[in-house]
């Protein structure tokens, strides 16, 4: 039940200034309405993790780590591996962040990122089964936000995706219903690369990749994840404003076109920052 407190007067002045600029197709930080900020992705920096990625989207910075364990499958899904995604905003991420259990924003963040990856079927969970009904790989994606400057949704999603793409997990051999860990590691089975695009509505303008200042002034927000076929896989509207049907059609086409652009960025960053990573991804996706 947390409700964000806003300093109303300052924000109203900010909002007025922002609306004026938006009417001229300009933003306070100089970007065009449909421009996202500089995206940088570095993978494989945490050797103790099966996969990891550090992503910065403008001044927003997040780190994702993948840990893979062997676990029992859910009783209603004996032939599927597990994927569990978690996100938290660390106390060092902003002067306003506080330690403690995750609040509703952090929970929404983790669930929206999880939804995009799960619903796109990025990981072929049916190929994570070691012994049917008994042993499966459990893939844990944990994301920590290191610095907040808006659009945690996309930064977090890109970090999890990049970490999953570069993750290597131990191979197990089954001998007499028992698992024997081999020295060899293998990549995760990947079906597609989902890309999340978050847009904000301020007045009647739709902007891509809102920063913290813009998020403080926005009426509503929408996050859309699309897959390689240009299908929409997951969506979440947020904020206490609304969208018209026309605006929702506009954001969908934006999410699809920008999505394929960002997908190529992720693909090339992943390929350049780890040796051999790209080949293994290509072979999994084709």
């Amino acid at each position: 039940m947390s409700v964000k407190k806003t300093t109303t007067i300052v924000e109203q002045l900010r909002r007025a200034q922002m609306s004026e600029l938006l009417a001229m197709n300009k933003r306070l930080d100089g970007r065009g309405l449909k421009d996202y900020r500089e995206l940088r992705i570095e993978t494989g920096l945490i050797k103790k993790a099966n996969g990891s990625a550090l992503v910065s989207l403008g001044n927003t910075q997040v780190i994702a780590g993948i840990k893979v364990e062997v676990d029992e499958p859910f009783p209603d899904m004996p032939d599927k591996g597990l994927f569990i995604c978690n996100a938290e905003v660390l106390p060092l991420a902003s002067p306003y962040a506080e330690p403690g259990p995750p609040d509703e924003d952090a929970i929404e963040l983790a669930r929206v990122v999880d939804r995009g990856i799960r619903e796109s079927e990025m990981i072929a969970l049916d190929r994570l089964v070691l012994i049917s009904g008994k042993k499966v790989y459990a893939v844990f994606a944990d994301v920590s936000v290191l610095n907040t400057d808006g659009n945690l949704f996309d930064a977090t999603s890109y970090a999890v995706v990049a970490a999953l793409l570069t993750a290597r997990v131990p191979r197990y051999d089954v001998q007499d219903e028992k698992l024997v860990k081999s020295e060899e590691t293998i990549p995760l089975p990947i079906n597609t690369i989902p890309v999340s695009i978050t847009m904000a509505k301020i007045g009647n303008s739709i902007i891509v990749d809102p920063n913290a200042e813009e998020e403080a002034c926005m009426d509503a927000r929408i996050t859309m994840a699309t897959d390689e076929q240009g299908r929409v896989c997951a969506m979440q509207k947020g904020g206490s404003g609304t969208f018209s049907v026309d605006q929702l059609n506009e954001v969908a086409s934006l999410a699809i076109s920008l999505g394929s652009e960002v997908r190529e960025r992720i693909r090339s960053s992943v390929a350049s920052s780890t040796g051999g990573g790209a080949n293994s991804i290509r072979s999994m996706t084709s």
């Binding site: 299908r231 509207k237 018209s244 929702l248």
Partner: peptide, 26 residues
Amino acid sequence: LPNLKQVSLLQLDGKLTADEYRECLN
């Protein structure tokens, strides 16, 4: 919001093509 013709909640779980998305929303 039926009189203001505004959407105040929108979520999606699952895959839809761009055309299916529009059809589903309507």
